[in-house]
Design a protein around this nucleic acid. Structure first.
Length: 884
DNA sequence: AATCTGGAAACACTG
DNA sequence: GACAGTGTTTCCAGA
């Protein structure tokens, strides 16, 4: 398929790799929703229908990565249908042949999608080989040599947002890179193979076929950043001509001299060109961008709310030449983005075939490189099946589950939240350590048959799915203190350490050989195609992957990530960091004490609660009152402010952060305000202990507002928990928030002070009988979780509590409180509010009760399946109630 | 001697 | 353009 098939006239403009022309075209001529693409031809071959893959190498490595053809050839080989051809690329070929390439921008009409589908269908119908035999078009070989750069381009790498903000987000093509993830994966591996000439296989049988390996620490070209082959010089030819990183001048700060620009533009290593379609949090990570950040840190599937992806990136993205460059160097495939073009992305779990995708992707992308429409940005980077063919493992920026079936990859010991990364100009700063003083430990659960390599790389720690971090690379630490054997490989320009958890070690591996290397922002940002900025983008994660062989011959790929690690010296010393907090929800009345545990808290630290709209604007902001006398070095206690709108009918998600000053903010943490819905009900039988429970469970597995309405003849609160547990959807522990209204006439609240869940300072002892499946109610900072909201609180209010004392079977409230992970505390405003409601006789009072409404309702909630009760049902109840 | 580590100076960027 | 504040990168020195 060519652009002509789409009926659009190709735009062909010349050979100007300076940003201006491309950018102008991009911003002015290409509508965001156009499926525009950019072709870069050599003049010599632009008219060829079949062209050899020719690229002007950005570096030798990337040069090899720059051909679809090579990928396809590679793919064919993997399919066993063809031999891998003799790769004879050399940098000289590219550079000499295409000193003045041309660029062709092709706009693709939406009808092209149909073509894609057609191709898919054809492919699915067995015409794969036919398709593979289709001529390939020249594609996307951008010369990244800085001599092609616009000389007026500011050499300042830190100009970041403002200097680049002329590009429309919508027109951004960054996400396009994902379309090519898969292809790129193959491509770059092949590139690595042929570039480095070492088609080694994993000693453990890892299916990765193409890899560059430094099998021995002593042989590692990277173990010493000062003079060894590091990311830049290893992955690029820079090392040959690069002046020493360390300036000869004693105070020789590295300046952005023309030479630097040259090197930066030419050979800056790009480790994560697989940038994402979502908003880039980079730029001011600790500030507004983080505020819209989801606390969900992990590459978990299907758990990322859309809103995370809908925010407008802070750093706007270049399209034209950036993507051309990116694609030239990376040509990444991403089935997620491909989904915008093709339905084939919804591949069956048991038949995942990246190669299959390759076909489709090639069909759609070797002809043009689409500028995705804005909706692409909204798509999750999730949903990939973790089952892959051995020849087509998932790219590093694919989200993968940490758990699948019986298998789970788990970070048993998390790293410390701070680790000062070292520059190339420095010596190593050692391996990442764990809080305990040892090292992080990763464990593969469910598989003990034979050693399986666990791959480790440095990933991002922003609100989106984990992907390789552009500004950090893993650095293998060697030395006598390092026990764990490891080898270093490069996958898609990302350094990866491989560590084999051994069955004799219970499939655990201590990560004592992983340091973190910081790349200069200027090097990365000036690189063609890089859209992320490094400034204040100093949080990373250790990302772990395991590829578990399956009997089918395929492999199961699992991935998990550590908690975020702050790598900046300064940030680590100054930025407040929230590690966990005691509660994650409160009624709109506020008043609860929130215990935040973390570091770098100051006496003048503030805790700010805020609500942001979808537009990213702050709609509400309030400062929590610090309870100074309860604050400690690593704890800060704050009284949760009341939400500004107390009549909300549904849970409201807000955020809070700790700040030590204007720019010293922690990452934002998610917090929920819950509506006050319940009130006392009057029952004729005063001996009947009835509870109406509303469970607002916004956690895993519960996406809707569930109402649990049942008559609970409970002997104690264990019964409540038990009942609720039994009513909760499978796999879900105690719901997020439970509000009980025990309805006894003429009873005043008594156990109304059990609102507060456990805190770190007052851990509750769970009754093993009732709480066995109830996770800890202390909320880890979301950044500390590998899965979002794996825990739920048992935020329980029982009203009127005095009724419980009158209950013949109620038992001792205090002990029950502990049983239910509740504890006595001072009367909270929430309770007060309830009490007021409960004693009110006003006809419009909520005391009319949910129960009566339920009884009046057509919906029989007593018999209706819990799962079927939705937020709408609740809203309807409220509406009726209020209408009374 | 090499590596690791903490501190801080010098420089760069932002507002 | 100057300036202050903040962030990055490099250098130093000691363990």
């Amino acid at each position: 398929m060519s652009a002509a098939h789409c009926g659009w006239e190709d735009l062909d403009f010349r050979a100007i790799f300076g940003e201006e022309s491309l950018e102008n075209h991009d911003s002015a001529d290409i509508a965001p929703d156009d499926c525009a693409s950019f072709f870069i031809f050599s003049r010599d071959q632009a008219n060829s229908s079949v062209s050899q893959p020719v690229c002007i190498p950005y570096n030798e490595h990337q040069m090899h990565s720059s051909t679809h053809s090579s990928c396809l050839q590679d793919y064919r080989n993997n399919d066993g249908s063809k031999e891998i051809p003799d790769y004879t690329y050399s940098s000289s070929v590219g550079t000499k042949s295409f000193e003045c390439p041309s660029i062709q921008i092709t706009s693709i009409s939406p009808s092209c999608h149909q073509d894609i589908e057609t191709l898919e269908n054809a492919e699915n119908n067995g015409s794969e080989r036919d398709y593979m035999d289709r001529p390939l078009r020249d594609h996307l070989c951008l010369h990244l040599e800085p001599t092609f750069r616009d000389p007026s381009l500011s050499p300042s790498p830190g100009s970041s947002i403002s200097s680049r903000s002329w590009i429309s987000d919508a027109s951004s093509c960054e996400s396009l890179s994902h379309i090519y993830d898969d292809l790129d994966s193959e491509l770059n591996e092949a590139a690595a193979r042929f570039t480095l000439g070492s088609p080694l296989t994993s000693p453990s049988g890892s299916p990765r076929e193409y890899r560059s390996v430094s099998p021995s620490p002593r042989q590692s070209p990277c173990h010493s950043p000062r003079n060894s082959i590091t990311d830049e010089n290893w992955l690029s030819p820079r090392s040959a001509s690069k002046p020493p990183s360390r300036p000869t001048s004693p105070c020789g700060k590295r300046r952005h001299s023309s030479a630097d620009i040259f090197y930066s533009g030419l050979v800056s290593p790009h480790y994560s060109p697989a940038t994402s379609p979502g908003p880039s949090p980079r730029g001011s990570i600790t500030e507004d961008t983080w505020l819209s950040a989801s606390p969900h840190p992990a590459p978990s599937l299907s758990l990322y709310p859309c809103w995370q992806e809908t925010a407008i990136p802070l750093k706007t993205r270049k399209t034209s030449e950036d993507h051309s460059a990116r694609l030239a160097g990376k040509t990444e495939l991403n089935t997620e983005d491909l989904a915008c073009l093709s339905p084939i992305v919804d591949m069956p779990a048991d038949e995942t075939s990246c190669s299959q995708h390759l076909l489709v992707q090639d069909s759609s992308t070797d002809q043009f490189l689409s500028v995705p429409s804005h909706f692409t940005w909204n798509k999750h980077k999730s949903g990939h099946t973790p089952v892959f063919r051995t020849s087509s493992l998932p790219p590093l920026d694919w989200a993968l589950p940490s758990r699948y079936g019986q298998y789970e990859l788990k970070v048993e010991v998390q790293p410390k939240t701070h680790h000062r990364a070292h520059y190339e100009t420095e010596g190593s700063r050692g391996a990442v350590k764990a809080v305990t003083g040892s090292h992080p430990i990763v464990k593969l659960i469910g598989y003990t048959e034979k050693p399986v390599n666990v791959q480790i790389f440095i990933g991002t720690a922003d609100e989106r799915y984990v992907k390789p971090h552009a500004f950090y690379q893993i650095h293998r630490i060697t030395g006598k203190t390092v026990v764990t054997a490891s080898q270093e490989i490069v996958i898609t320009n990302t350094k990866v350490l491989e560590i084999p958890p051994l069955p004799e070690n219970n499939m655990t591996a201590s990560i004592d050989c992983a340091g973190i290397l910081k790349l200069r922002n200027s090097d990365i940002e000036l690189r063609k195609g890089e859209t992320d900025i490094g400034r204040k983008n100093t949080r990373v994660r250790l990302v772990f992957r395991a590829h578990i062989p399956q009997t089918s011959g395929k492999v199961l790929s699992l991935q998990t990530a550590s908690i975020p690690i702050e790598c900046s010296q300064r940030s680590a010393q100054e930025l407040p960091q929230v590690e966990k907090y005691s509660v994650n929800s409160c009624s709109v009345n506020g008043g609860l004490e929130l215990v935040i545990t973390g570091s770098n808290f100051m006496p003048d630290s503030k805790v700010i609660f805020l609500e942001k709209g979808q537009d990213g604007c702050t709609h509400w902001e309030a400062e929590g009152k610090i309870v100074l006398k309860k604050c400690q070095m690593n704890n800060i206690v704050v009284e949760i402010p009341a939400y500004h709108n107390k009549s909300v009918a549904a849970e409201v998600q807000v955020q809070f952060y700790v700040c030590n000053g204007k720019r010293k903010r922690s990452q934002s943490q998610r917090f929920n305000y819950t509506p006050v819905l319940l009130k006392q009900e009057n029952l004729e039988d005063g001996n009947l202990q009835e509870a109406t429970a509303v469970s607002v469970a916004k956690g895993r597995g519960i996406s809707d507002l569930h109402i649990i309405h049942t008559n609970l003849l409970f002997q104690d609160q264990r019964s409540i928990c038990k009942t609720l547990k039994s009513l909760s959807p499978p796999g879900v522990g105690c719901p997020n928030q439970l509000t009980f209204t025990s309805s006894l006439k003429h009873e005043a609240p008594h156990i109304s002070n059990i609102q507060e869940p456990c805190t770190s300072s007052s851990p509750c002892t769970a009754d093993p009988e009732t709480m066995e499946n109830y996770p800890d109610t202390i909320y880890s900072s979301p950044q500390k979780q590998s899965m979002p909201y794996q825990g739920f609180s048992s935020d329980i209010t029982i009203l009127p509590s005095s009724s419980l004392t009158a209950m013949p079977h109620c038992g001792q409230p205090s002990s029950h409180t502990h049983d239910c992970r509740l504890r006595d505390n001072s009367l909270s405003p929430t309770i007060t509010h309830h009490r007021q409601n409960s004693t009110s006789s006003h006809p419009t009072d909520m005391s009319l009760g949910i129960k009566s409404e339920l009884e009046d309702s057509d919906i029989n909630f007593q018999t209706k399946d819990l799962q079927d009760i939705t937020l709408d049902d609740v809203a309807e109840i409220i509406r009726r109630d209020m209408s009374h």
